[in-house]
Amino acid sequence: MHEASLAHYALEILNETIKNDSSLNDKDIKKITFSVGKFSNVYAESFEFYFSELIKNTKFTSAKLEFLNSDENGFFVSSIEVDE
């Protein structure tokens, strides 16, 4: 259930990234990669469900979501992939 809160936090981070880099304004976001730590208490499938709903009709709507397992503690927005 708390994955819903995390989806909101993640979208805020992504929006800030776009806002702080004007060169990204007209670029399509192709992929968003998340890193899921061992004890992060995050169930990626559940997060993906909420996050996908949240980004509908936003700049991120057609981005592919990728989740990589990690030994590092915590749940991270790792990177985005944009059109050249």
Partner: peptide, 14 residues
Amino acid sequence: MEIKILKNVMIKND
């Protein structure tokens, strides 16, 4: 082109 973000999602709560 890949752009690194590397931000803990909990940063907003923390």
